[in-house]
Amino acid sequence: MNIMKSLKRRPATDQEMGLDDETLKRHRALTADFTKLYRDLEVEGYFKPSPGHIAYRVVELFLLMTAGIYLIQQDCGVCCTLGVMSFALFQGRCGWLQHEGGHHSLTGNSKVDRFIQAIFYGVGDGMASSWWSSQHNRHHAMPQRLKRDVDLETLPLLAFNSKVVRNPKHGKSFFVQNQATLFLAIDTLLVATMWKLYLHPRYVIQRKRYHELFFMILHYAFAYSVGFFPYMTSVWLASIYIFGNFSLSHTHLPVTQGPLHWVEYAFLHTLDIETSWWCDWWMAYLNYQIEHHLFPTMPQFRHRLIRDRVRALAAKHNIPFYCSSYGDAVMKTYGNLLEVSKELRH
């Protein structure tokens, strides 16, 4: 960040933008209206941190963790099952909280938010917050943009769009041809395990981020306390919870290769899921994905309060606003996985 600030900068000229006059005019109007909405929301206090909401999220995680460990240790099959589910929810919802910390939308202080992120992603999931941020920020810059959005780079396990497959042999592989079945059943656990045991530890050691490594090691103290099989089952369930919900908002939408306005990326390549009390909790407010992409530093629980204003912005500029029910989003996601497999088979 300091290096970026030290560089000289100036507005790009019309020639450097490489866009026709009509597109430039449309982009400028969209920029002006988005900027006005952003400033209005800022003045109205939508970006202010909420200590009460942060406290609720942390207390919830503590209760899920302690209940999970306690129940798993009881000599009772039903208790153990409930404990594994609680411990899985603890891990999954640590993922939601660290996501918000990574966007600096918790306390309003970026250093504090990153530290909170490192604690909960490390202790809760055994993963490295800095690695996650480096990847996720690229996704936010250009969602569904080929060769830019890292969330599209999922081979060899699966392909969310046939255009990401450059080698026809990869499209006919066992994993891709059966991806609709294997995505939640197998792929999520494979990815989570690879991240935990190899990718994330290697990343923090190479970059000497030892405080993150310390938090990641603490995670395995909890793993030891619950035992190997309950722990691995909870990791599997947590990975289904996280990856399954993340996939609903983007993966079935079209990919793009051409330049778009940043606001257009959010509207055209992101999907909202309808408001309901259970879905807001289950997805930790990431069902307001369009609002999240437009205002990533806003505390996520406030995104539901601005949906109508965001929808009005889209309508003013004749841009579609995609919103589905949770069940519909699941059907679209799995329908897309099946369709991509079929397309690649032939």
Rank of each mutant, 00 (worst) to 15 (best):
V150I: 14
D125P: 02
A118G: 02
P143N: 03
G108Q: 08
L89S: 09
H136F: 02
L152P: 09
V112L: 15
C76K: 08
G102A: 00
Q74E: 14
H136M: 07
L89T: 09
T107S: 11
V78T: 13
C79Y: 15
R148V: 14
A128F: 11
M127K: 12
S129C: 11
W131T: 00
Q73Y: 00
S105A: 15
A67I: 10
Y70T: 13
R138L: 15
L89D: 05
D125H: 11
R148I: 09
L82I: 12
D75S: 13
S133A: 14
V112N: 06
P143T: 08
R93M: 10
S110G: 03
A67Q: 06
Q74L: 15
D149T: 15
Q135W: 05
G102Y: 00
S130Q: 10
H140A: 05
K111D: 15
Q135G: 12
V112A: 07
S130I: 07
A118M: 10
W131S: 01
S110D: 11
G102T: 02
H104Q: 15
F120R: 00
D149V: 03
S86D: 04
D75G: 04
I69M: 09
L146A: 04
F90G: 02
C79H: 10
I116T: 04
R114S: 11
V78S: 12
L152Y: 07
L152H: 08
A88D: 07
H104R: 09
Q74T: 13
S110F: 09
M85P: 01
D125M: 12
N137M: 14
A128I: 09
C79W: 12
G126V: 04
V123G: 03
R148Y: 14
C76V: 10
R148E: 15
E100L: 01
G95K: 02
G126A: 12
R93D: 14
L106N: 04
A88W: 04
M85C: 13
F90L: 07
D125Q: 14
C94E: 03
F115H: 12
F87S: 08
Q135P: 01
R114C: 05
V123Y: 04
Y70C: 08
S110R: 14
G101E: 01
A141P: 04
K111A: 15
E100P: 00
T81L: 11
I119L: 09
W132K: 03
V123P: 04
H139L: 10
T81W: 11
C79V: 02
G124F: 05
